[in-house]
């Protein structure tokens, strides 16, 4: 069987399964990235505006999550979560092992790692917003919420786009690790295909190509977004 027949959409082809797996990779990465955006925003806010204790707590979070392996975080959430869930169910009178959902555990794990990186990006972007803008907003009597919504958030997002592009690529690649807890995304599907056809090289190369495709297309998208967001900024 030729390569294109094997990876095609015919009766013996793996095309449809790999396409579904690619959608799963996109879904889990986007979910993780969104979790990271919310949590990362809160962390950045805690470090910029929170009291000393909150600031130190947020800083510790970032240091810890950037210092331990991503695989360990996924294991911790999946197996740790399962053991917590099992004991809760036992307490409720339901014996037997209860596993957490691989998608949820994986998305949360990659999301909380992404949050650590995203908080640094947002913090840097906040530093790039001209101080005069904030003073001017205060001077015209804007409330804190209004100032955040109209002045800070749009400009922070604008300056954060290049950094967020990098963090997104990280999340996309980390999503491959969720295959170890059994989520059928690209890498897991490639492993299944490799096992049943005994052509591991062909399947893993295809997986690599799919990741390259995703990272190239999204990198191009981020470049477009950056160009659009920066169109009003004068540059040397």
């Amino acid at each position: 069987m030729g390569y294109f027949e094997l990876m095609g959409f015919g009766p013996k082809g793996w095309g449809l399964l790999l396409a579904q797996a690619t959608l799963m990779t996109i879904a889990v990465s986007v979910t993780a990235f969104a979790i990271g955006a919310v949590l990362g925003g809160l962390l950045a806010w805690a470090r910029l505006a929170g009291g000393r204790g909150i600031g130190i707590a947020a800083e510790t979070y970032v240091t810890v999550l950037r210092g331990i392996p991503d695989l360990l975080v996924i294991y911790l959430l999946y197996f740790g979560g399962s053991s917590v869930l099992t004991s809760v169910m036992r307490w409720l009178g339901n014996d037997g092992f209860v596993g957490v959902n691989a998608f949820a555990a994986g998305a949360i794990a990659v999301g909380i790692i992404s949050a650590a990186y995203q908080s640094e990006v947002y913090r840097g972007a906040f530093g790039a917003v001209a101080k005069g803008e904030i003073e001017a907003a205060r001077a015209v009597g804007m409330g804190r919420m209004l100032m955040f919504r109209r002045i800070l958030a749009p400009q922070i997002l604008r300056f954060a786009i290049p950094g967020l592009g990098n963090v997104w690529q990280l999340a996309l690649k980390e999503s491959a690790l969720i295959s170890v807890v059994g989520l059928t995304e690209i890498l897991r599907q490639a492993q299944v295909g490799a096992g049943s056809t005994r052509q591991p090289f062909v399947f893993f190369i295809t997986a690599a190509l799919l990741y390259l495709l995703l990272s190239t297309v999204s990198g191009w998208g981020f470049n477009r977004a950056e160009a659009a967001a920066m169109r009003g900024v004068r540059r040397a």
């Binding site: 690649k173 999503s175 295959s179 490639a190 591991p200 893993f204 997986a207 690599a208 990741y211 390259l212």
Partner: peptide, 14 residues
């Protein structure tokens, strides 16, 4: 552009 785990599998199994 590709995850390290894919590279490891490609070398070890592939």
């Amino acid at each position: 552009g590709t995850p390290l785990l894919v590279q490891i599998f490609l070398i070890y199994y592939g």
